[in-house]
Write a protein that binds this DNA or RNA. Structure first.
Lengths: 332, 332
DNA sequence: CTGAAAGCGCTTACAG
DNA sequence: CTGAAAGCGCTTACAG
């Protein structure tokens, strides 16, 4: 029950705590005899010694933890893949990524009391108070938020570009009257707004009317109501917020007796595995999640001054054309 | 850049660090004048003081962090909901849940060096070395693993019961020759095996042959090959590992020209949102994720001796009938 | 090649 | 009602 400390290892191996620390951390300057080294390592192993993370952090003034704050709307396969990539990339830099599911029902203060991260990756906006707390503590925050221009390391996934790409695809295929299928989930509001604004801008640029926005629930009947509404308004192409919503539109079209893509074309976002299994298979926008992860991690490491070694500067963001790509299937 | 410490707050408010600590922690025994209290709180606010998590942890001997270790196969909407519930329930106990995505590509040693959790929720098996490290440090581990009977607090979601429920449903509806649609993903192997073994046992109990296992990829063409194989073997009911696989089977059946459920009945697991949008809508098994989360958290809090206050014992696991339920739709 | 000592920031008996 | 002091476990100059 009692914690095994480096003092225990030292006593048990007949050396000082200094030596234990040198051995276990493989301290560069330290010249420890092979025999001592082995003895210490064996003892540590035998006692099951694990250094106290708290003491290390207190002593060194910094933790090896990066916290990723996940807003409650950000679930799904794309985020999962992003987190996997972030985990790997931070691990390569010796940092452990821990994900906090921010449900928005209590302040993050509790979190900051429990952990002092080396850096924060915020996939949603932080409250001003939290952002200030991080700033005072000197903890860099990188994220997909557009709301904190004060943080230069903010990296924004250009959501607008996604909406624009979708509109461009439909217009290229001859559609002139578009609909936008927005998610029913309020929590997605902010995200959807950004994609929608990109879609609107692209529509203006391409000389077509702004898409007619309708909320689409994940339910065939409800979706069919939306589809009928669009149809009556002369809409022939639907830009969906994501693949789930797009699949609901497909179901709604089927329920409404419309053929896809002949009567109505549909394009989603995310390229989830199930998007290949619909009838017809769904055209969608694939995202280069690895590239986005690289940018986020790069920005974080830059802010931490991690890159000095290689002198390699943070890669400049790839153009949208490389971050996103239309996957053409049968629904458009 | 320099950290704001309680000493700064003390100096700035003209009191001792003791007083600052009393005020900020609302220490029960402490009788602080209202004026002093206000002054300290104001100063802390003004300086943007956040206590050092590391120092708190070192001093108190324990952190307020619970780490959930997520194996790389455990993604998807069900796990997301589980994590949300876990986050909420632990937060109610004053603990912050942080999720670590274990990609299995490097030892967790790095993680334990970065954070000393108060408890660990392991959604997959820990290596013996990691389990031992947690044991030595006196950190309770709860989880869905069946592999560590040494840990009494282990709570296992009865995966077998899911497979059994699926088989029971199909047999009840008259199916005598069953197929099992296994996921292609190797990482799901362990999980799938448990559900499959439940399906096998139930088949024996019900007096039907064990289900014929075929791997089904998330691809219409590949799935249609599996479906044809089943069809030729006289299979009329498919138990799918989860809804994604089930949807692939639906797509495969369509590609193979079979009607669902007339020619082939299909039942999935998870009740993902998209399962209502397929044609026909998918029969599936709904899981009481909140119940599972309660058990996990209850086991952890029990192990931490958190329940003394209310004297309320850990709720005994609900019977499988309450943890799972068949959602009857059109595919069976 | 190895050890004694300081100090990271906090909380908490203990003493006023 | 408030403060001086110890100590949590670690690392790292510094001194041998």
């Amino acid at each position: 029950m009692l914690r095994v400390t480096s003092a225990d290892v030292a006593r048990e191996s007949g050396v000082s705590r200094t030596t234990v620390s040198y051995v276990l951390n493989a301290t560069p300057g330290a010249a420890i005899s092979d025999e001592t080294r082995r003895r210490v390592l064996d003892t540590a192993e035998r006692l099951g010694y694990t250094p106290s993370a708290a003491a290390r952090a207190l002593r060194s003034g910094r933790s090896d933890i990066v916290v990723c704050v996940l807003p409650d709307w950000s679930a799904g396969p794309v985020i999962d893949r992003l987190l996997d990539h972030l985990t790997t990339l931070f691990a390569e830099a010796g940092l452990s990524l821990l994900v906090f599911h921010d449900l928005g029902d209590r302040p993050l203060t509790h979190l900051w009391r429990a952990v002092t991260p080396r850096a924060v990756v915020a996939l949603g906006p932080l409250t001003p108070a939290d952002a200030a707390a991080m700033a005072v503590a000197g903890i860099p925050v990188v994220g997909a938020t557009l709301d904190a221009p004060s943080a230069p390391q903010t990296f924004a996934v250009p959501q607008q570009a996604i909406g624009a790409l979708q509109v461009g695809h439909l217009v290229d295929r001859g559609h002139r009257v578009l609909g936008y299928a927005a998610p029913h989930d309020d929590r997605l509001e902010e995200f959807a707004q950004r994609r929608l604004s990109g879609a609107r801008a692209a529509s203006r640029e391409r000389g077509v009317a702004e898409p007619q926005v309708r909320t689409v629930e994940l339910d065939s009947l409800e979706a069919s109501v939306a589809v009928r509404g669009w149809w009556q308004a002369g809409v022939t192409g639907i830009v969906a917020y994501n693949d789930e919503v797009a699949i609901a539109v497909l179901a709604g079209a089927r329920a409404a007796g419309l053929r896809v893509p002949d009567d109505l074309a549909v394009i989603g976002v995310d390229d989830i595995p199930l998007s290949r299994l619909t009838t017809p298979a769904l055209t969608t926008v694939w995202q280069a999640i690895d590239g986005q992860a690289e940018h986020l991690v790069g920005a974080a490491l830059d802010a931490l001054g991690h890159r000095e070694g290689g002198g390699r500067p943070s890669p400049s963001p790839r153009p949208a054309g490389e971050l996103f790509r239309v996957v053409q299937r049968a629904s458009t």
